[in-house]
Amino acid sequence: MTGKILAVAQNTFRESVRDKVLYVLLFFAATAILGSKALGWISIGQDIKIVKDISLSAISVFGVLIAIFVGTNLVYKEVDKRTIYTILSRPLHRFEFILGKYLGLAALLGVVTISMAVVAAAYVLTLGGTVDTTFAIAVALTYVELLLITAFSVLLSTAASPILGALVVFSIYVVGHATNILIDLPPHFDDTFARRVMELVYYILPNLSNLNVRAEAANEVAVAWAYVGWATAYGLFYTAVVLALAALAFEDKDV
């Protein structure tokens, strides 16, 4: 079983590396990281902090964009280009295919995240700053966030067109970073249907703020290892649930 998943994953990695959108987004990410010094100049004495903050945010935003634009195409493209016919007619489970596609993109995002983090860290060091453990933790939790967003992208890829999928996943990313607004409603929403819907969405959607320690990293504030462990488990649990839903959605799908 592992060999088949690995075969699909390696192929997905090779395929995704050839996606032009990856390089466009990486270019903008590098520009954002290296251009962050410009904002540092207007924040007297805060330039290293600003560079760290913008660099970590760039890793998150551009990583998420790659996860969305490549991820929402993953299964859809296989069906559209009919390459899936000769794959699913082989003796592998459909969930193995989904998992392989997911792991291939997750590996690519791992390489992308590490590359962007190395560039950001080197830039911070060049500017005379320091790179501490919290910086590494912020990058690691950002990667967990990317794993979760990729799982949503794969789920949508099994059921919707890439454009619709990208819109939905991007909305999940945005709302996931501000879940509190879903329940902090003005009093006149009390006992309304809208409030109940908002509460439902609040409990269903992951709270991506749990995976965001970028402000702590920028301010060089230590983060407890217990929190890191809990946040990682939270992100990976959500990822597993979303991937299971993707496998379920794909199990009986006509291709």
């Binding site: 192929n11 395929e15 280009k81 009919r82 390459t83 016919y85 000769t86 007619s89 082989r90 003796p91 592998l92 489970h93």
Partner: peptide, 18 residues
């Protein structure tokens, strides 16, 4: 079942590969 697919070699119309 996978057992059935193990027995089959399938050539689709206009086969597409990577």
């Amino acid at each position: 079942t996978r057992a059935a697919r193990s027995c089959i070699g399938y050539l689709p119309e206009n086969p597409y590969f990577y």
